[in-house]
Design a protein around this nucleic acid. Structure first.
Length: 368
DNA sequence: AATACGGGGAC
DNA sequence: GTCCCAGTATT
């Protein structure tokens, strides 16, 4: 049985499997397809070639690097973990399982993955791919997310793990764990698995009994939620009004246009009231610039992007008047006027970035 | 045990 | 539209 034959892709963290590189790759790959990660990984390692570089990274620059990958807590945890490694491990990635597990953003899967892939040590793994591969292999007819299934799958993952000398990476734990995941990604796919190409087809319960479509059972039970939000674009001279989100909230440390949904802004009037409170002046929402549809995690968002104007009647009062009002406002903590060029260097949500793109092409006359 | 995570790809 | 992705932290 040649597991390692499934280990076919040329991935950058295989060419050089230092613990740091494998760690970064594993964090990026959490809930993210490998192909999506590749360009981010190369850029990231170029910007932060060592753990010390990462620990010393500017937080905003780090978030900008992560922009578009989603699950942004991963980036904050990565940063915090790098600082912890510098403080507690002299800048060297820890080698004991417990020390690795104690790092923020690292759970049982990631700790095992890093130590097995980087050091070829015999730690089992279990993630999306191997849950499916092993479930089919052993004919587990209980959904893999159940507590009992998890226990059996971890047990099987450990049972199958080859114990080889540490210099035999291809046939050792490093090769096996990566091959098992790759088998799930390329062959043992959720739908229409390619059993005729599978190296373990002759041993696989699901294949032998034709249960590929029943195993694993449906995992998804997400309730999608439609949500409409309003974004306000104040554009005065060559600048727009944005805010940096504070710690502890969604998009913490990232920059966004003023944006709210229900219950704060259930309609344009609600948004105007909220903005007026924030800025201490009357606000009028004007022309709708764009409707952005954005599906993310369990949300199906419709974002109404409106031009916005400071002060009553300023829509028709001309640019000089708007500029005067803008400069008289005491902005709340975290809010600022920024040019579109300046925004290029700041971390934004995907929808925020789309609004920037919109404004680059927009006619300034839309903003009076 | 259930939920949040505010991104994206494949079908 | 739906499901899933080299999961973890929080409640």
């Amino acid at each position: 049985m040649k597991w390692f034959a499934a280990n076919a892709r040329d991935l950058p963290w295989r060419r050089d499997h230092s613990a740091y590189r494998v760690w970064v790759s594993e964090i990026m790959c959490q809930q993210t397809q490998v192909a999506t990660v590749l360009p981010y990984f190369e850029r990231f390692l170029e910007a932060y070639p060592t753990i010390a570089n990462l620990a010393a990274a500017d937080e905003a620059e780090l978030m900008r690097m992560w922009e578009g990958l989603g699950y942004y807590r991963r980036a904050r945890s990565l940063h915090a973990a790098a600082q912890k490694i510098v403080a507690e491990h002299d800048g060297n990635f820890p080698t004991s399982f417990d020390d690795v597990l104690a790092l923020p953003g690292i759970g049982r899967y990631t700790a095992g993955a890093i130590l097995s892939i980087s050091r070829n040590e015999a730690f089992p793994i279990l993630e999306g791919n191997t849950q499916r591969v092993f479930s089919r292999w052993i004919g587990l007819n209980v959904p893999p997310t159940e507590r009992e299934s998890q226990a059996r799958l971890w047990e099987f993952s450990e049972l199958m793990l080859p114990r080889r000398s540490a210099d035999d990476r291809t046939r050792g734990p490093a090769g096996f764990n990566q091959a098992a995941m790759e088998l799930g990604a390329l062959v043992c796919s959720p739908r229409n698995p390619k059993c005729d190409e599978c190296p373990v087809a002759s041993l696989c319960h699901a294949n032998l009994f034709g249960l590929q479509d029943e195993i694993p059972g449906k995992i998804s039970k997400v309730q999608y939620e439609s949500r409409t939000e309003i974004a306000a674009v104040f554009r005065v001279d060559d600048k727009v009004l944005v805010r940096t989100l504070p710690k502890g909230v969604r998009f913490a440390g990232m920059v966004d246009f003023p944006r709210e949904g229900p219950p704060v802004a259930s309609d344009l009037a609600g948004m105007e009231s909220w903005l007026a409170v924030q800025l201490g002046v009357e606000v009028q929402l004007g022309m709708k610039l764009k409707t952005i549809k954005h599906a993310v995690t369990r949300y199906r968002m419709t974002l109404q992007v409106h031009a916005a104007h400071l002060g009553v009647g300023q829509m028709d009062a001309g640019e000089a008047a708007a500029s005067t009002v803008a400069s008289s406002i005491a902005l709340p903590e975290g809010w600022q006027w920024a040019t579109l060029d300046e925004l290029e260097a700041m971390p934004m949500s995907v929808t925020g970035r789309k609004i920037v793109g919109l404004l680059k092409d927009a006619q300034p006359s839309l903003f009076g």
